[in-house]
Amino acid sequence: MATVKPRVKAPKSATTGEIITIKTLISHKMESGQRKDKQGNLIPRQIINHFTARYNGEVVFEVDIEPAISANPYLQFNMRVEEPGEFEFIWNDDDGSVYATKQKLKVG
């Protein structure tokens, strides 16, 4: 993909105490570093190596990611809702790129 785009599915509103599920998907080849090109040379590794989910600045969930995670990495996790605020989701690429997206959460 020309641009690496993250997708996030999280509820826009929830009630206090509710445990919500967050799903994320990001387009990325996740080049493992194990494959060889037509000349027999190893194609260098390039993967998303880390994912962080923050809520109001606090880390709620984090993943150390290895090449064994499939291309277009999918991650699903949960959070117990306590107060309204904003999520920030961050993906780190081996090449130093950082992909991020934010989403607000209303609490009623």
Binding site: R7, L25, S27
Partner: peptide
């Protein structure tokens, strides 16, 4: 549709 990886292309 969210979990379907093909939708990464649909979005583009």
């Amino acid at each position: 549709d969210f979990e379907n990886p093909a939708f990464l292309w649909v979005e583009q």
